[in-house]
């Protein structure tokens, strides 16, 4: 196990060192410490360059559009009829058991039951739906996707392995049971030179994770399909579709988010979740500010 972890760590470091700096920071300026946050917005039409083939290496951000604290990007939970979701009766029951801090059914802070406020892992695909920003390291077997929120990382396998078969409580691979995981099991393939399609199954059940900050549910029966479409050297479109027959009567789209490639030299200031800091915050501000 230790050996595997060391190998993986060495692989990631190697990828970091060898990965080409695409699109930005090709200049010869002296090495320095750039601003530790993503600041680069969409590039102007005149500055667009052709996308490289079959790679999404780099640091990507949609700036504040990635925040999605009011609900997933394409369906904010604001009560508008077009944003209502096709819940199954069970899905609606689960939704109503959630006490979110945001969205049209938000509750007073003291009454919330969002796993996030206990620093539980957000789970997948909720990591795509909150404070989204990523760093991708890619090799011939996989992509390592490093989420800036809470310093979490995910693997997407592109070596041709089959998608595991969802079974009760987990997945089946090569006749063997494997447990549900926070990021599930992700398999990707290039459907053309500029579009990576990723399918994920085997995520955590609905009593452990939410879909977004507004308490929408998702179950371990979900099949999540993402497409990473490279539009040009500096722009990637990240789309996502949820197919979860336990919770929703039909598949629906959550994301179609344009991400911009950031300066590869950024030593990112992460937004981690610290139980101690959350506790301090609640004691000094949140409890009194939110009291009746």
């Amino acid at each position: 196990m230790l050996h595997r972890m060391m190998t993986l760590t060495a692989g990631l470091l190697g990828a970091a060192l060898l990965a080409p700096a695409e699109g930005v920071a090709q200049d010869k300026t002296p090495a320095t410490w750039p601003s530790p946050v993503a600041t680069r917005g969409p590039v102007a039409e005149k500055d667009k360059k052709p996308a490289p083939r079959r790679t999404i290496n780099g640091m990507w951000s949609a700036l504040r559009l990635g925040n999605q604290s009011g609900g997933v990007q394409l369906k904010p939970n604001n009560g508008r009829p077009e944003n209502e979701l096709p819940y199954t009766p069970y899905g609606l029951q689960v939704y109503r058991s959630h006490k979110p801090l945001e969205g049209k059914d938000s509750v007073d802070p003291a009454d919330n039951n969002d796993p996030r406020t206990k620093c539980e892992p957000l789970g997948f695909p909720r990591y795509n739906h909150y404070d989204l920003g990523i760093q991708v390291f890619q090799d011939e077997h996989k992509l390592a996707m490093l989420y800036s929120f809470d310093n979490r990382w995910r693997m997407i396998w592109t070596d041709g392995r089959p998608l595991p078969k969802p079974v009760d409580g987990g997945v089946e691979v090569d006749g063997e049971f494997r447990e549900n995981r926070w990021f599930g099991y992700s398999v990707g393939r290039w459907i053309d030179d500029y579009t990576l399609e990723v399918v994920t199954v085997g995520t955590m059940p609905e009593d452990r994770v939410w879909l977004d900050n507004t308490g929408r549910p998702i179950s371990d029966q979900a099949r999540i399909t993402e497409r990473f479409r490279r539009l040009d050297a500096d722009t990637m479109e990240w789309s996502e579709t949820i197919d979860d027959p336990k919770i929703y009567t039909r598949p629906w789209d959550t994301l179609k988010l344009r991400m911009t490639l950031q300066d590869p030299r950024i030593d990112l200031m992460t937004r981690y979740c610290s139980p101690v800091e959350i506790d301090n915050y609640n004691k000094s501000f949140g409890d009194a500010a939110g009291a009746p």
Partner: peptide
């Protein structure tokens, strides 16, 4: 009001991001 709240005790786990407050 603050004194009363201190006497009564205040709720816990109140991190939020919502705007209704």
């Amino acid at each position: 009001g603050v004194a009363l709240a201190l006497l009564a005790g205040v709720p816990v786990h109140a991190h939020h991001s919502g705007s209704t407050l």
